[in-house]
Design a protein around this nucleic acid. Structure first.
Length: 495
RNA sequence: GCGGCUGUGGUCCAGCCUGGUUAGGACUCAAGCUUCCCAAGCUUGAUGCCCGGGUUCGAAUCCCGGCAGCCGCACCA
């Protein structure tokens, strides 16, 4: 049976060492989470696998790191200063707050998103708008910015923000990397790091946090020139079926890439590769869909936008964990205008500003998805998680703690620990030790027993079936290597 | 941010209404015994009333404020 409630899952996470609220001993602060000793290893492995997978798609996809703090002007150019803040108006009578632009739009029927604080206040007075909830008088308009503002310099003389997304740092590096990469296009710049949003009310655990981790890959290209290249690569994914839900569909269906040929090749190619990552690396198949967002749902600069959604019981259904956004030349054009630096490159006999396709992953949400889909309860509580991602890959036990088995098991542990993330446990009954590893998703348990002392062999128990095989210690490392690398199945060694 | 409910060892909960022995249970954890393969048993032990203020001879319990969590509303370029 699959674990259903967030309470149960959060309880295990706290008890065993995965994830819990940050600054807990002082009462905590909403929207901030710590990763414990198991959670940190899981997250770390996920990020490693993510980098390995996406950077190997093309030898011209690379990793960069940029600061968490960005100067005011950067986010002014990107549009975040304007679009990431809302004007809120509070009712003098009932105290409820409303978005000022929505109040105005409801009356005028025209977009008021461009309006500033004073304009909205004047418009509300002019149109005589009262509180939608209680009809009371509305108070002053106030700016609310979702970005954390920081003061830079000893006297705080310059304003900056904690970045609301990692992408802007990457975009600003386009001209430098364009030259450093010897003008080879297309190229991709990936980054993994924190981003910050001052959410009004963070809820649903790690799903909406004020500080969270992003893993993003921005690909820079010129559609008219590089379309052909991606068209060729479609052959790579031609036989893949992907679970797609187009706008207007009410459920997903498995389709081949031929059936979404209305989308550009660079888009289809990366969409398929994203699904491949979920299928092969995260081993998620049934509870995933690639959902296309309608023009109302997506931001105006996203010309094509699919979200990766995973069906998570603990969060009540389909939840976004990643997105693929075709952002056209919006980002580089904005920075070209704001910085007065040339972002265009020679193409087709003129200068063109490259387009961007962005692969954006919420790391914490993906970690949560692994835990949500992986936990099973019933006869035993166990976590099913890919071997390469598991916090510990192997555990080593002595069957009993006497007659030299304890010492022998320590030898085996020391040998394996250099190759795998290995755990050694000697306390409690053997059954209890298996159960402990079940709960944290350790795929293989190696047990030293009395036969070990005579013939130098041990048993390996697989978490999925609890079946065991007996192997000689000389072959142990090699067999575990093949199992964790998925070169062999456990079944192959049975019988 | 607004309203309702909630906050007790590591986890989950009882106690609170009606203030008063040493705050109780289950699981967990540690040490030891036992143990030839799936949370067994025995012994011993560790850890707790979210924070701050008030009322009172006395507060886990009543009152006020804060913080956090859940649900609903709003928010989520």
């Amino acid at each position: 049976m699959v674990m259903t409630t967030r309470e149960e899952l959060e309880s295990v996470c706290k008890r065993r060492g995965f994830i819990w609220q940050s600054s807990e001993i002082y009462g905590g602060e909403a929207g901030f989470y710590d990763y414990g000793h198991l959670g940190a290893r899981l997250k770390d492995s996920w990020e490693e696998q993510w980098k390995d997978f996406f950077l190997s798609l093309d030898q011209n996809y690379h990793l960069v790191y940029t600061p968490n703090i960005l100067p005011y002007r950067v986010l002014e150019s990107s549009g975040h200063v304007e679009h990431f803040s809302d004007v809120l108006i509070k009712c003098n009578r009932c105290g409820n707050s409303f978005r000022g632009d929505h109040l105005v739009e409801d009356v005028t029927g025209e977009s008021a998103e461009w309006m500033g604080k004073d304009e909205i206040k004047n418009k509300v007075e002019e149109l005589n708008i009262s509180c939608p909830d209680c009809k009371g008088d509305l108070g002053d308009a106030e700016d609310f910015n979702m970005m954390f503002e920081v003061d830079i310099g000893p006297k705080g003389e310059r304003k900056g923000f904690l970045r609301p997304e990692t992408a802007q740092g990457t975009y600003m590096n386009f001209p430098r990397e364009y030259r450093a990469l010897r003008r080879n296009m297309p190229f991709g710049l990936a980054t993994v790091g924190p981003a910050f949003r001052n959410e009004i009310s963070p809820r649903q655990g790690v799903y909406r946090m004020r500080e969270f981790q992003q893993a993003e890959l921005q690909i820079f290209f010129i559609p008219s020139i590089h379309d052909a290249l991606f068209e060729e690569r479609l052959e790579e994914v031609a036989y893949t079926e992907i679970p797609v839900m187009r706008t207007g569909d009410d459920m997903k269906k498995m389709i081949s890439v031929d059936e979404i040929k209305d989308l550009p090749a660079y888009y289809i190619y990366h969409l398929s590769k994203i699904y491949e990552f979920y299928k092969d690396i995260m081993e998620i198949e049934g509870d995933i869909r690639l959902r296309e967002l309608s023009s109302e749902e997506r931001a105006f600069y996203n010309k094509i936008h699919f979200d990766v959604e995973i069906n998570m019981k603990s969060l009540g259904g389909w939840k976004e964990v990643a997105g693929l956004h075709y952002r056209s030349d919006h980002d580089l054009s904005q920075h070209q205008e704001g910085s007065n630096k040339k972002m265009s490159v020679p193409a087709d006999g003129e200068r063109k500003v490259p387009h961007v396709i962005e692969l954006s992953f919420g790391v914490d949400r993906n970690i949560w998805a692994l835990l949500d889909l992986g936990y099973r309860t019933g006869d035993r509580d166990w976590l099913t998680i890919p071997d390469k991602l598991a916090p510990y890959q192997v555990a080593v036990f002595p069957l009993v703690r006497k007659d030299g088995l304890l010492e022998k098991s320590e030898e085996v542990f020391n040998k394996l620990n250099t190759k795998f993330r290995t755990f050694w446990d000697v306390s409690g009954s053997i059954g209890k030790r298996y159960a402990r590893q079940d709960e944290i998703g350790t795929p293989y348990c190696v047990t030293v027993d009395y036969d070990t002392m005579e013939e130098d062999s041990v048993t390996i128990r697989e978490i999925k079936t609890t079946e065991q095989i007996r192997v000689s210690i000389t072959q142990l490392e090699e067999i575990l290597q093949k199992l964790t690398e998925k070169e062999k199945l456990f079944d192959d060694y049975m019988g």
